[in-house]
Simulated assay, not measured.
Amino acid sequence: MTSMADFNTHEQEARPICPHSEFCGGCIYQGVAYEDQLADKEKQVYGFLEAKSVVPAKVDAIEGCTVRYGYRNKMEYTFGDFVKDGETTLGMHRKKNFMSIITVDECQLVDEDFNVILDAVLNFVKANEYPFYHKRTHKGLMRNLIIRKGMRTEELLINIVTTSEEGFDEEAFTEMLLALNLRNKIVGILRTFNDNIADAVNCERLKTLWGRDYYMEKILNLDFKVSAFSFFQTNVEAAERLYSEALAMVDSFEGKSVFDLYCGTGTISQILALKARSVIGIELVSEAVDAARENAALNGLSNCSFIAGDVFEVLKGVSEKPDVIVVDPPRVGIQPKSLDKIIEYGVSEIIYISCNPKTMADNLKYMKYYGYECVYLKPFDNFPLTKHIESIALLRKK
């Protein structure tokens, strides 16, 4: 467990308040001592549980991060302007004003290379007078910049998102990026074409301008190939600690069949496959399942399989019965019909991994009614300075 002494190391001493904090809504705890951030998040978790009359048999104090800055391995920036008809900006949506974009070239949550790349790309766009995409008129060229990093491999994947309007100089853009003095290594430069009017990154066509269309990462000695739009844990070091502690809550997986529900790209499934007899991962997003299968093959794991589809619908057609179930649902939590199906198996232990304490409390209350007691719960702060809170819980059938 991370001790308070770890929060006082020189490398992670509190920094001056971010210069973007007045307008950027990414961090809500700027200027707040880390001990106070942890206390507030812990209070939120146990407040939600208390409101639902869920009383874990054992609780642990929230575990914080030893790395509180530069921990994000992905950022998705938007082109726009800060004031109407002003100069082009590149960064995050302004809080309480979604149409306004603030340039965040001194962000504290990312590796400094992200800030260098953002600044270089913005200057390139301005120098070439490329218009940004206007949400109201649906005209313009520049839409987004996505940067991803392998924290263990130090590989960078850069993806520029544009409309299909003509005029973008791909060769000059590539040369500009490759000439940057960076600490990490660029392994791929991509261009995504998106003419969809929705204010979101939609990949209608992906073009590799240089290198490859993925980067490599390692988690708990397993290799992962992460493509341009694959979901992957945002804070790798924190995810390792959380997964290790979550799986350690069960005494042994040896000889057991495990269901990993809402498995994403199968990170937990593959860690489990090193311990269990067999693992079945179920995930709604088909692209994530494709990535999970590819990475399982990359790691030589033959005892885990993945199924794409809605958890409830897939479970109706799976004949195998699990010994243990692991759930890692999205922020909306697990819907009642899926909970009913999970409960129906009657397994002795369920590991619940949460990214939203409110919906976790709702789900644990529901499962308590059907005989599942929360015997252990622990919150994690995997995203310092932000509002997000993770938790792990062990549920045991009475």
Rank of each mutant, 00 (worst) to 15 (best):
M142E: 07
I62K: 01
V59H: 09
A39G: 01
A248I: 10
R293W: 13
L90H: 01
G26T: 15
A296N: 02
I334V: 13
V289L: 08
F173M: 06
D111F: 03
V125M: 13
D6H: 11
R143K: 11
T103R: 00
R148M: 11
S100Y: 04
A292K: 02
A57M: 14
R143N: 03
L395Q: 01
F224I: 04
C24T: 09
V121T: 07
G255R: 11
K43C: 08
I342D: 03
N382D: 10
E175W: 10
A288I: 09
M4V: 06
Q37K: 03
G371S: 03
N202F: 15
Y372A: 00
I307C: 01
R183T: 13
D36A: 08
L364Q: 02
Y29I: 10
C18R: 05
K52H: 13
K341M: 13
T9F: 12
R191Y: 11
K207E: 15
M151V: 15
I271Q: 05
F380S: 02
L385I: 09
F232S: 00
P330Y: 05
E155C: 02
V375C: 05
H138K: 11
K225C: 10
H93D: 07
M360E: 07
F193C: 07
R293P: 01
K387H: 15
F79R: 07
L395F: 07
E11W: 12
L109Q: 03
